[in-house]
Design a protein around this nucleic acid. Structure first.
Lengths: 120, 120
DNA sequence: CTATTGCACTATGAAAATTATAGTGATATG
DNA sequence: CATATCACTATAATTTTCATAGTGCAATAG
């Protein structure tokens, strides 16, 4: 009673974890060290980042390359499966740029209703 | 100092919330009522589902249509901005079907290493 | 020589999000 | 008359994420 495995469901399970898409986005630009990645992702707690990276490494989306134990230098780099997420990121970027703009009130996210209403 | 609004960052912020992609996936098939959606999404707590739907409605990705207060009947349907997430779902589906398979050990998700290694 | 910075993280306890579970009121179904 | 269904809400427990501080040691700044 668990044989209804759906790869799409599983994929969503991976991608909807907090920070995963941000991490992937940064690593798509170029491989980074832990603190570097932490800064560029912005706002992610190191404990969470560490856990997320462990999971992604275990899953095989990200590779951890320990370049030197001392001075410490570790590189996180997308595996081919990780690089393949470029398609997803591209789609998210398209959607975001088309439909999301800053809320004129509080500067938070809201939908670009122009785009929604008047497809002139 | 907060004028670096990035629509892509904001889009990720929306899509990485737990259950959002699952909800969108179901609503892309067809509009549904609350319990219907709850069942088809599978495993989402009604409090969380309710909150997520509120947020998506507020954002403008989902529309709530109260068809009758009694007997209660509400329909959740994607707005055009929601339907536009089809591109994202498509990309996620492609990635999932290509790279994710059930782990032979425990039946959980893992990567399809065949795909990764031998691109014949 | 000494102080600071930077590396990759881990530890701790507090705060926030999600969960299981139960329940709302009324009607339609068995 | 008992049960199921609709769209949720309420409560309390659990899980996840968080802010903050700290590890050991080399390279750099003063």
């Amino acid at each position: 009673m668990s044989d209804d495995f759906c790869p799409v469901h599983a994929a969503i399970g991976v991608l909807q974890q907090k920070w995963v898409l941000h991490i992937v986005r940064e690593l798509l630009n170029e491989p980074r060290g832990f603190n570097e990645l932490s800064r560029s992702v912005g706002g992610c707690n190191p404990a969470t980042l560490s856990q997320r990276l462990d999971e992604l490494v275990t899953l095989g989306v990200v590779g951890r390359e320990v370049q030197s134990v001392f001075p410490p230098r570790t590189l996180y780099r997308l595996t081919p499966a990780g690089v393949a997420l470029q398609g997803v990121m591209q789609a998210v970027e398209n959607w975001g740029r088309t439909y999301i703009k800053p809320d004129p009130q509080d500067g938070h996210a809201c939908l670009n209703q122009q785009q929604v209403d008047s497809a002139s």
